[in-house]
Structure formats: structure tokens, C-alpha cells
Design a protein around this nucleic acid. Structure first.
Lengths: 156, 156
DNA sequence: TTTAAATAGGACCAATATAGTTCTGTTTAA
DNA sequence: TTAAACAGAACTATATTGGTCCTATTTAAA
């Protein structure tokens, strides 16, 4: 359905909130209360983000989670990688090899892979810092300019 | 999981095959045999494509399907629109309004919508004609150039 | 006129994937 | 020593999707 999973959605929500207070350590209970989500779900998300080193954790009483690095260095693509369990790709065959018997002479597979690359690149270009505040129009314009060439832009 | 549904995948397969013989009328049975897919599934796909006017159909004996317009005028985004039943969007809240109670003061929703716009634009830019043959490197380069600015490209 | 080939639409079932929960274990501050 | 907190893994329920089937309609050909 061309959707990111709900866990990924929650992940961006949690991380953008944490990005607002980079120093603080957040417990699962804290975040659950503030974000109106169930603690077990948030816990699941943070564990996965921890495994992918997007957050650091402190165990034991008074423990919690914090961003592993500045928000500008965490991309939406990385969040997706951490929270989606299947590898990135718009079609199964373009994400993983050997899933289709006609793969040998399939001409569209390579094209899906190229589409993947471009979409991926878009997602790589959006950082958590971009997600925190309303994206300034300038940066949106940049994204659009990146995706759609301005005709005035020299073809080279 | 950020995947297009299998029906969409089949749809691109079917349409790219049909694009190779723009004049011919294809029956479901024909396509099923050539593409090694089950007829009922192909039928389902073609019916949906017909409803969205990507293919035309001729009923009755000797009937079948044909592309409704040249392959260059059919985009991957249109195929997705025809075959995915949920509206386009990477998150539920960014595709449809009113699905989340904190929508009012949610700051990331608007950003997801902007991401949607860019991804959508990428998919709009790929036509069935592009999918038919191996995308020439030139056009791939264009896609990448569109998504990622060449630094030599004047910022204006 | 009849028959068979073909699409149209919709309902239905089965399989899969996801969301969410729960349990057990480990760590650590108080 | 206790309680707060994370780690990991298993489990269940639900939702979505994939796939099939049935009935109706259309039309060429016999």
C-alpha cells in the first residue's frame, strides 16, 4: 500500500519529540504520557531504534533513552531501515533477489530498482531536524527543485 | 512496509507487455499464458485498470484489452492510483485527514505531506514507456539529477 | 437463433503481515 | 535489598491483501 508501517510512524513521532530536548533522558513512561501512546508500543520502537544505534539507552533505575547523535544527522531513511523489517524497496523483487522465477528476463525489475534508488535518496535527504519544525519553505523548495528540475537549470 | 501491492506489481508487468504491441487486443487468457500468472488475478488487475481508464476493453467473443493511450502518457503513479485501494501517502495521516486525534498540533504531519509530494512527483515522472525497455542511462541520470542536485547547478 | 468466448462486478475465503501485549531476564540507582 | 528501568523474545489477535469464484452481460461466429 506504499505506506510506512505504524511503528515507523511512531518512531518519527518519538524521535522528533526527543530532538526537542537533546540533553534529556526519556523513559518509556515519560514518552508514553506525553505522546498519548501505549508504553509497550513505544518500548518496542525504542528497542529497535537502539539496536540500529539511532538512540542510546541507559539501563537501570533513572535510565532512559536519548538521541545517539544530533537530529541533523539522523535521516528519515535511517528510521525506516530501523523500523521496517523488510529491506527497502517498492516491490519485493527489487528489494530482494530470487523472489521471482522470471527474474532472468524481467525487464522492469531493473527499472523498479532505479526508482527505489531515487525515492530512497529523497528519504535520505530529509533529516530529523527537518521534521522537528515546520519545514521552511526554502527547504521544501529545495526538495522540489531536487526532484523536479527547474527548466532554467542548465542540463549539465 | 513501503511496498507497492502485488496487484500494482502485476499491473506494471501486464501493461509493459501490452505496450510492446500497442495495436493488439489482449485477452486475459493470452496474458496469463505469456506472463505465467493466473487468469483470475490478471482479470482483477485489468478490470481495475479499465475503471481508471488506463486500458480500454472490448467485450464479447474476440474481445480483450488494449492500452487506452500511448505508453509515454501512462505514469507509474497512475498505475499505483488505479491498483492501490488506499490513497497515496507514506503515512495514513498524511494521506487522509482526521485519522489521528493529535492532528491539530502535530508538527510532523505537514512534513510527511511534503515528502509525499516529492515521492509522488518522482513516480509521476516515470512513464510506462520508461519501464518497457531498460531505462537508458541518460534518463536515469536525469532522474537522479532531478532528485539530487548537481552542485554545479545554479541554486536559483 | 444459438452457442461460446470474453469482460464486469462483486462477494468470498485463506494466507500473510502487522500491531500490540505479555513475560522473563538484566541492569543499576537509591 | 528493592524498585525502576531497559532487553529480548514469544505470542495473539486483527487487519489487510491476495487470490478465487460466481453470476451477469456483451458480442462474434456458427
Amino acid at each position: 500500500m506504499l505506506r510506512v508501517s505504524k511503528l515507523t510512524d511512531y518512531g518519527t513521532l518519538v524521535l522528533t519529540h526527543m530532538a526537542g530536548f537533546p540533553e534529556r533522558l526519556f523513559s518509556v513512561a515519560d514518552l508514553a504520557q506525553v505522546l498519548h501512546l501505549n508504553a509497550p508500543t513505544i518500548s518496542k520502537v525504542l528497542k529497535a531504534l537502539g539496536r540500529h544505534e539511532l538512540v542510546t539507552s541507559v539501563r537501570g533505575a533513572r535510565g532512559g533513552y536519548a538521541l545517539a547523535r544530533p537530529a541533523a544527522q539522523i535521516s528519515v531513511a535511517q528510521i525506516i531501515d530501523a523500523l521496517e523489517d523488510q529491506p527497502f524497496g517498492l516491490t519485493e523483487c527489487s528489494a530482494t533477489a530470487g523472489t521471482c522465477d522470471i527474474e532472468g528476463d524481467c525487464r522492469i525489475r531493473a527499472n523498479w530498482q532505479r526508482i527505489n534508488t531515487v525515492v530512497r535518496r529523497v528519504l535520505d535527504d530529509v533529516s530529523l531536524a527537518d521534521m522537528v519544525q515546520p519545514m521552511p519553505l526554502a527547504s521544501e523548495a529545495t526538495m522540489v527543485r531536487r526532484a523536479l528540475p527547474n527548466r532554467k537549470c542548465s542540463p549539465q
